[in-house]
Design a protein around this nucleic acid. Sequence first.
DNA 1: TTCCTAATGTGACAAAAGTCACCAACGAAC
DNA 2: GTTCGTTGGTGACTTTTGTCACATTAGGAA
Lengths: 205, 205
Amino acid sequence: MISEKFDFLLEAGLREEFEQAGQLMQIPPRQLVVEPQKYIKVIPFLLKGSMKVIRQDEDGHELFIYYIRSGETCAVSLSTLLMDKLASIKAITEDDVELIAIPSSLARRWYDMYPSWRMFVLRAMDQRFEEVINTLDKVAFKKIDERLLDYLTEKTKITGSKSLNMTHQEIANELSTSREVISRLLKLFEQRGILKLFRNKIEIN
Amino acid sequence: MISEKFDFLLEAGLREEFEQAGQLMQIPPRQLVVEPQKYIKVIPFLLKGSMKVIRQDEDGHELFIYYIRSGETCAVSLSTLLMDKLASIKAITEDDVELIAIPSSLARRWYDMYPSWRMFVLRAMDQRFEEVINTLDKVAFKKIDERLLDYLTEKTKITGSKSLNMTHQEIANELSTSREVISRLLKLFEQRGILKLFRNKIEIN
DNA sequence: TTCCTAATGTGACAAAAGTCACCAACGAAC
DNA sequence: GTTCGTTGGTGACTTTTGTCACATTAGGAA
């Protein structure tokens, strides 16, 4: 049963509606799921894979906000939808993603009907807020070498794999720095035996 | 009537409860209203003055999160309380503050009873999230001179006054940099005619 | 007034991060 | 195999930011 993975849905009615209305979807990597300046049509609940939430600022910079991992949803989409606003962010799949899509209208109705759904919305937002604050803290007080190390360990924890398939440029983007800086630091880490470098791939020890 | 300032309280019952249960309080400057590692006892609704919300990280750094201004409340406190967690932040008055304190138990009950209160909670969190993301964006992509300038204009917009009563050290803390950096930049701005410096005071043109 | 402290000013320097230029190497396509 | 675009490596340099040390000054307290 689909909703078993989402055990925070307490009310029987809610579980039923969730089962019925939730559309199971398979989405290929690098596909846009939430587009800025559009209305949110569905709320994604990830079953497999991960998505990236990004904001584009006025200067065209892409600010990485957070990942959505298996078992999670997009808090920003939720609040945007509940408040009937246009999306301010974009969400893009990182790899092959399997998700359950809940229509916006339902998510909105449930907010008024089901206490456990209300709590879920709250928890989702609270958790994301916490994450963003932590990022802010790191950006404000830590040097990039430490941030990079944090990033790598975090990333392996999420994916469960010791090997990371990304280019230095992609990492640099997420940490808002330049490719050269990342390359140099990675090389340094390799010399220290922390990891091993390959093309498009990093293996962490 | 107290609740006139808070016109988002739509339901008659809610307005009534708010009037009855809300405690009008006067609080002197620099007083702790929310303490970390304690339960939230009341939710503050500011009528006058402003408060600062800060987080202390493991290394003892104080990270400025946001201001609470007149007409606003503390979104983090709200969600913390609704989820029955311990406070992770501290909130401190900046100047003489007048506020209405709503007992936690009520705020929690209202979340289940009144749609407009639910929307209010949502809006508060959404707005703060947006603010923090904006800060993150600035910290990630802008240089301190621009951040300082932004900070000064923002601050005057909030207080409505062209003069700012703070020391360079205090500004440095909020921008997570050092006093010397701020002093130097302010001097530069003064030379450019953007502002005028006094002891404990900056006047912006 | 005089004294004292907090606040500010500033030069010199160090550290961190970003930029530029260019090369090397890998792997996919031909 | 050869070609070519992408990715990664690296030295040299600049810019930005942070740090240290110390001088100066304003304004309240004695």
